[in-house]
Simulated scan of single mutants.
Amino acid sequence: MVLLDSRAGIHDIAAIAIMRLSSLSLLFANDNPHTWAGYRMLFDQWRQLPASLRDDLRQRLKMVAAMVPSASAPERLERFRDHAQQCFAETLYDDTCPDDDEAFNFGPDDENAPHFPLPILFAHDLVGIDRASVLDWHEQPFIKAAYDRFLPEAGALAVEEQA
């Protein structure tokens, strides 16, 4: 599994790791125009790959909505999902008609779609946490709340990929 955090931009080495080394690539992102512009450029490059490489690659992707403010999480996750779906639709999803079951294309609300995000919620207590001085840091309520949906869903995807 490859975890890619694109908040600081996407480096060529990250793109190679996704293409060649992983069976599952989690693409971490914040919902902002810079993120989607970066992913759009990367996906546009992948669209130029031979069909067999492109088809294999795009089946191994899953978006992660990182640092989502918990107070407005449902609205922000919906907006993230819509922006991710638009990015995928413009680049990696097949143009298709509704009855084409063979096409690589997903509706906006399809939880199995690569664009449908796994969420990680943001809590101010996460900033600067000193794991060395708080031995049970992973048991803290704010940690559990932040990763409540992400860990089981990412774990299930990783296990699925290993099978």
Rank of each mutant, 00 (worst) to 15 (best):
A15Q: 12
S25W: 06
P33H: 08
P108Y: 06
I120P: 09
S72L: 11
H124R: 14
L77T: 00
L49V: 03
L118E: 06
D100Q: 05
S52P: 01
R76A: 06
L27I: 10
N112C: 11
S52K: 12
L118F: 06
L77E: 01
F122Q: 04
P69V: 06
R40G: 09
R40T: 13
C87G: 04
R54C: 08
E78P: 02
F116N: 02
R20A: 07
I120N: 07
S23V: 09
D109Q: 12
A84R: 03
L92V: 13
R58D: 04
A123P: 00
H34W: 11
E75F: 03
S52Q: 13
R79K: 11
R58S: 03
A89D: 10
W36A: 01
I10M: 12
A51K: 15
L92Q: 10
D109A: 10
S25G: 00
A14F: 14
K62V: 08
F104P: 02
Q86N: 08
D55C: 05
G107I: 01
Q48W: 03
W46S: 09
R81V: 00
L77F: 02
R79L: 09
D99T: 14
D56I: 09
S22A: 15
E90N: 10
S52A: 14
A84G: 08
M41G: 06
M67H: 07
F104E: 03
E111A: 15
L27C: 07
P98S: 05
L121S: 00
D94H: 08
L42H: 02
Y93I: 00
Q86I: 06
I18C: 14
Y39C: 05
E102F: 07
N112M: 09
V64M: 12
H115R: 04
R47W: 11
Q59W: 13
F28G: 10
D31N: 14
D31S: 09
N105M: 07
I16R: 11
A65D: 08
R76C: 03
A103W: 03
E75S: 04
D31F: 05
Q85W: 14
P114G: 00
L26A: 03
Y39K: 03
P117G: 08
M19K: 15
I18K: 07
T35G: 15
H115K: 05
L49R: 04
R47P: 01
D95P: 02
S22L: 13
P69K: 04
M67P: 00
D82W: 02
